[in-house]
């Protein structure tokens, strides 16, 4: 089977998995506890890395853009530029990539191990649908928590940018934040929250599908995990491009 057919089959399998997960979400039993547990593991558990990533990304953005803007005499626009980059692009994409590494790999490895140790078969034999019990709660938890984590990353990034502009370049804090307030529109924020919903679906579905289709023992678990992280990361970046363009058209943003 050549790579194109294999990829298409994988897209089909992943799409079917997502469809099955959402269809079964509304059938009893609904695993609410499992959803909250996953939201805690995925959302609260990722908070530290998101805070660190967000803060230093905002900081380095200021570090790189302030001198250039100053050259053109537009240094009072630093806050605007940093906030816009973060809210529209870097916040959603970096949060998604960090979560792919942390959460996507964990999901693929956990489900993969369950497959090779026959726990998935045991679950089915005991009358539980693994898609409902394992996949659906993870997808829901990701779809709920990733936009929240993105907002946290955006806010902390802007604070990081403000801290660098004040601390290193002596720019007044008020001036930085007023350019943020005046520059950012509701559409920017809306777009920045829609993106992580799509990214969450990508990360969750790819990781779950790779995990559940694990073959070949513990080596297979490693392969599935690597493959889940690589595939989801690439898909997030590719999807980001198309989403950015689609949002420009839908929300009538500059760049159309």
């Amino acid at each position: 089977m050549n790579i194109a057919i294999r990829s298409l089959l994988e897209v089909q399998e992943t799409s079917l998995l997502v469809a099955r997960a959402f269809r079964r979400l509304f059938r009893r039993p609904i695993y609410l506890t499992e959803m909250f547990t996953q939201a805690d593991v995925i959302g609260v558990g990722s908070l530290t890395i998101i805070l660190l990533t967000g803060f230093f990304t905002g900081g380095v953005l200021t570090l790189q853009t302030y001198p250039t803007l100053k050259y053109y005499g537009a240094q009072d626009q630093t806050g605007y530029l940093v906030a816009l980059s973060l809210v529209r692009e870097l916040g959603p994409v970096l949060t998604a990539l960090m979560c792919t590494g942390r959460v996507g790999s964990a999901i693929a490895a956990e489900l993969g191990s369950m497959v090779v140790s026959q726990q998935i078969d045991a679950m089915r034999a005991l009358g539980t649908d693994p898609v409902r019990k394992l996949v659906a709660p993870r997808l829901v938890a990701l779809v709920v928590t990733l936009p929240l984590l993105t907002v946290v990353a955006d806010v902390i990034g802007i604070i990081g940018g403000g801290a660098v502009s004040t601390g290193l370049y002596g720019m007044p804090m008020e001036s930085f934040f007023s350019s943020v307030r005046h520059g950012i529109t509701t559409d920017d924020i809306t777009g920045g929250v829609i993106k992580p919903v799509v990214f969450a679906l990508i990360i969750g579905s790819v990781a779950c599908n790779k995990g559940l289709s694990t073959e070949g023992g513990t080596v297979g678990v490693g392969r599935s995990t690597t493959s889940a992280v690589v595939t989801a990361s690439i898909l997030v970046i590719v999807a980001d491009f198309f989403l950015a363009k689609a949002l420009q058209v839908i929300l009538n943003m500059p760049g159309k």
Partner: peptide, 23 residues
């Protein structure tokens, strides 16, 4: 399908090679 099979499986017990306990 998987949904109908769930009813049938309620009447069947399965003992796996390594136990397949949920870790």
């Amino acid at each position: 399908g998987e949904y109908e099979m769930m009813r049938v499986r309620k009447n069947i017990g399965m003992i796996f090679q390594e136990g397949a306990l949920f870790d």
